[in-house]
Design a protein around this nucleic acid. Structure first.
Lengths: 111, 111
DNA sequence: CGTGCGCATCGATGGTTGTCTATATAGCCA
DNA sequence: TGGCTATATAGACAACCATCGATGCGCACG
């Protein structure tokens, strides 16, 4: 169990850090963020670069170099996997909203 | 950043391990599982107990002792937090399917 | 060219984690 | 009480991780 090659576990480990979770949330909000805007007074530049590498190797993000700066964004493939993974954990009585090939019809409560 | 008191990060760290993710998935499927049924030939009993403790301290699960055995189940508060957390990460254009108070009916595809 | 800036990489380091064996605790049964 | 089973705890150890300072690399602008 030492070598974690499971993509789901990799994804979770990528998000399981306060700095990286903040980065993911910022990317979710803005869509595309320059690495220069991800800086934080509490962490050094190499540390930020390290976290970006972890997120990249976990499949979470991609970086797009434009001249001097690098713009990071979430990978749609990772988001799809994330939705499926997160939807697979929950209370059995309350089915998860998994977007599969079936269609979902919304029914108002009876009372 | 060394002490992670953020409940979201705690939740993610709890799930970010292959053994623990398997436990969470089993609890999601079955609803309530005896610790004796969570055993796996690859891991020793103390290791399993350790993972259960991590999940408990992360808020994921609770254990209910019934005589000799202890039955574990997911905590609804953790699931609520998990849904909110996982729904907060994604592509801005594609809103997350957050389950509300309405009920969901599954409809088979027409073709 | 060279200088400056943004970002990545290297190497080191202290804290954290997953795992084990050994032992303790808790409940059942005779 | 004593033995048996299920689970937790203690202690130890190797692997891993987050962090930093120093350094390298790529790109823009003189």
């Amino acid at each position: 169990m030492r070598r974690h090659t499971d993509p789901d576990v990799l994804l979770l480990q990528g998000a399981a850090d306060p700095t990286r979770l903040a980065i993911l949330r910022q990317l979710s909000d803005v869509g595309e963020v320059c690495a220069c805007d991800l800086g934080h007074p509490d962490i050094s530049q190499p540390t930020l670069s390290h976290h970006l590498r972890v997120l990249r190797e976990a499949g979470w993000i991609t970086g797009d170099r434009r001249g001097t700066w690098i713009w990071y964004s979430l990978r749609p493939e990772a988001v799809v996997r994330w939705r499926r993974l997160s939807g697979g954990i929950g209370i059995p009585g309350a089915p998860s909203p998994e977007p599969d090939r079936r269609r979902l019809a919304v029914v108002q409560p009876t009372g």
